[in-house]
Amino acid sequence: MTVEATALRAVLRPHASGVAVLTAQGEDGPAGVTITSFTSLSARPALVSFALADTSGTWALVRDAEWFGIQLLGAHQTELAERFATRGADRFAPPTGWHSGPHGVPLLDGCLGWLVCARQQRSRVGDHHLVVASVEHVREGAPGESLVHLHGRLRPVTSTTASRI
């Protein structure tokens, strides 16, 4: 039995996903993309994963990068998430604040936290590429509320919402 994409989307729309930005340094400069497929896989060793679609313009850079950053976005960063989700946008131009982190990985300012990761495995899975990475550096940002993707929109998770969970 094959599940239709529209049926799958209808079932998954009410499932909230955390919003992050994946960044890497390429030969032509920094690149990045908003992702909602990020997850923690293991604490020992520290492993995370994410998936990018075949159609992602950032995939070629990520495929070849040994190091990349994962920025966990706060509720105040909806515009940043949208900028990094927009094809053709100059994502690192002002007003985006960023700096070079460990291993030259571009890190965005104002995030809830940052991970600098080394690629361990990648494989094609359906119409996406799954990447498993080891976490080599972490840094906490300012405290704040998370940004999630829910019902096809970016939404803040407030303390009120979180306390009801």
Score class of each variant (00 low, 15 high):
residue 25 Q to I: 02
residue 33 V to P: 01
residue 45 P to V: 07
residue 117 C to I: 04
residue 146 S to A: 14
residue 116 V to Q: 07
residue 45 P to C: 03
residue 99 H to Y: 11
residue 35 I to Y: 01
residue 94 P to D: 06
residue 99 H to L: 13
residue 27 E to H: 09
residue 115 L to K: 04
residue 20 A to C: 14
residue 24 A to I: 01
residue 9 R to F: 07
residue 19 V to K: 00
residue 106 P to D: 09
residue 7 A to L: 13
residue 54 D to Q: 09
residue 120 Q to Y: 01
residue 122 R to T: 09
residue 78 T to L: 09
residue 103 H to E: 14
residue 127 D to Q: 10
residue 12 L to W: 08
residue 79 E to W: 01
residue 131 V to R: 01
residue 134 S to Y: 00
residue 152 G to F: 04
residue 63 R to G: 01
residue 11 V to R: 13
residue 120 Q to S: 09
residue 114 W to D: 02
residue 67 W to N: 12
residue 122 R to N: 07
residue 164 R to V: 00
residue 68 F to P: 00
residue 141 G to F: 06
residue 49 S to K: 06
residue 109 D to I: 10
residue 76 H to L: 08
residue 57 G to Q: 04
residue 65 A to T: 10
residue 94 P to I: 03
residue 13 R to Q: 08
residue 102 P to K: 12
residue 9 R to L: 10
residue 131 V to H: 06
residue 151 H to K: 11
residue 156 P to W: 06
residue 68 F to G: 10
residue 22 L to A: 01
residue 26 G to L: 04
residue 27 E to V: 12
residue 14 P to T: 07
residue 127 D to C: 09
residue 133 A to C: 08
residue 90 D to A: 14
residue 124 R to A: 15
residue 86 T to D: 04
residue 13 R to H: 01
residue 19 V to F: 04
residue 123 S to E: 12
residue 113 G to I: 09
residue 7 A to K: 13
residue 21 V to G: 00
residue 96 T to S: 11
residue 87 R to I: 02
residue 71 Q to N: 15
residue 102 P to E: 15
residue 72 L to Q: 13
residue 53 A to F: 03
residue 83 R to E: 02
residue 140 E to L: 13
